[in-house]
C-alpha cells in the first residue's frame, strides 16, 4: 500500500472528467474507485484532493451534481459531465496527448542507446 503514488498536480481534474465521460453519472466514491482501478491500484486518490476538485469543476460548470440513490439504496451525490465539460475534456486530452508525445520523444533516444 505504501508504494502507491499520489495523483500528479492538475491531472486529477482530467481523470475525473474522463471517468464521468466513460461511466456517465457517478458519485465521488465511484470516481475515486474507478481512478484507482484504472491505475491498477498504483494511484491513491486522497479525498482531501478529490472533493475540492469536484467543487471547483462544478463551479466552473464542467460538471453538475444531483442527489440520487446508490446501488445499495443510499442517498448519494451524483456528478454528471456537462456540454462545456465535454468540450473541455476534448481540448485537455488533445493537449495531454501532445505533451506526452513530446515527453516520449525526449526519452526515446535514451532508450535506443
Amino acid at each position: 500500500m505504501g508504494e502507491k503514488k499520489d495523483v500528479w498536480q492538475g491531472t486529477l481534474a482530467l481523470m475525473v472528467l474522463k471517468t464521468l465521460d466513460v461511466l456517465g453519472p457517478q458519485h465521488g466514491y465511484g470516481i475515486a474507485r474507478r481512478i484507482e482501478q484504472i491505475s491498477e491500484n498504483l494511484l491513491a486518490v486522497n479525498q482531501g484532493t478529490l472533493y475540492p476538485v469536484l467543487i471547483k469543476l462544478e463551479q466552473e460548470g464542467s460538471i453538475t451534481s444531483n442527489w440520487g440513490t446508490s446501488d445499495n439504496n443510499r442517498r448519494a451525490k451524483f456528478y454528471t459531465l456537462t456540454k462545456s465539460g465535454r468540450k473541455q475534456l476534448q481540448a485537455e486530452s488533445r493537449h495531454w496527448r501532445q505533451t506526452t508525445a513530446i515527453i516520449d520523444r525526449f526519452f526515446a533516444p535514451e532508450k535506443a542507446l
Binding site: 458519485h27 465521488g28 466514491y29 474507485r33 472533493y51 442527489w67 446508490s70 442517498r75 448519494a76 451525490k77
Partner: peptide, 17 residues
C-alpha cells in the same frame, strides 16, 4: 450538511468495500 453526507457516504462505501 450535504458535504457531510457526501463524505460520510464515501467513507461508508470504503468501509463496506
Amino acid at each position: 450538511a450535504q458535504l457531510d453526507a457526501e463524505l460520510r457516504f464515501d467513507y461508508d462505501q470504503r468501509v463496506a468495500a
